[in-house]
Amino acid sequence: MKQPILEITNLHAGVEGKQILKGVNLRITEGEVHAIMGPNGSGKSTLAAILAGREGYSITEGQIHYYGKDLLEMSPEARAREGVFLAFQYPVEIPGVNTTYFLKAAVNEVRKHNGLSEYDAMEFLNLVKEKMKILHLPEDFLKRPVNAGFSGGEKKRNEIFQMVVLDPKLAILDETDSGLDIDALKVVSAGVNKLKRQDNAQLVITHYQRLLDYIIPDFVHVLFNGEIVRTGGKELALELEERGYDWILKEELQTA
């Protein structure tokens, strides 16, 4: 029996008095890949930010449960330790913090939380070496400060690299495809697909369909004006690519 990982019920949320999410419902079960698509300003990134625990949003109604626990009660670090991972749309540069140091600290926080012993430098290196190859990262990458001076593509690959290393239960990809050329897109997708198992799930947020050629979703949801207005299979993404978002909106208006 597969367990539900994430259950979002009637989520209403906003920022600075502006209502952005207006009753989102979403249920993600183990082994599933979900895609959320939608035009700019529909609330996609807000949803990702709220799931990761970014401050500054007010939740006015609704609930989010993660493995049955109230996710909104958990700090960002508690969520991460329990297996929530957000690949940032705009990864942050942290000059002065070396990537090894940062990622080893993160891995060990998660391990400690799970009652496992912390990795020493050697064990950590063994863990990451293979994974660096998957994402075509240069050898000196671990010695460089986190994202500092990286190109847009390198930053996105670094996000997925961290994701692969931390091996989350729920991976959320916020517009990971933006700014990537087709080769980088393939590399990034290969990383994401390596992670796919029967006991975890992925939530892919994107504006365009092209990422979904490589990361095949089980469900596609269309988020519009703060609500999920349609849910379908992977063919829905293709339809959106061909016809744009307008036809759904027209249909919505007719049924409303």
Binding site: E77, F88, I94, P95, G96, F102, L103, A105, H113, P145
Partner: peptide, 19 residues
């Protein structure tokens, strides 16, 4: 960003100051 990777708030602050 650091917290979203599992690093506690205080540790994140100290890491940034050290950086």
């Amino acid at each position: 960003y650091l917290r979203s990777r599992g690093i506690g708030q205080e540790t994140a602050r100290r890491m940034l100051i050290h950086s």
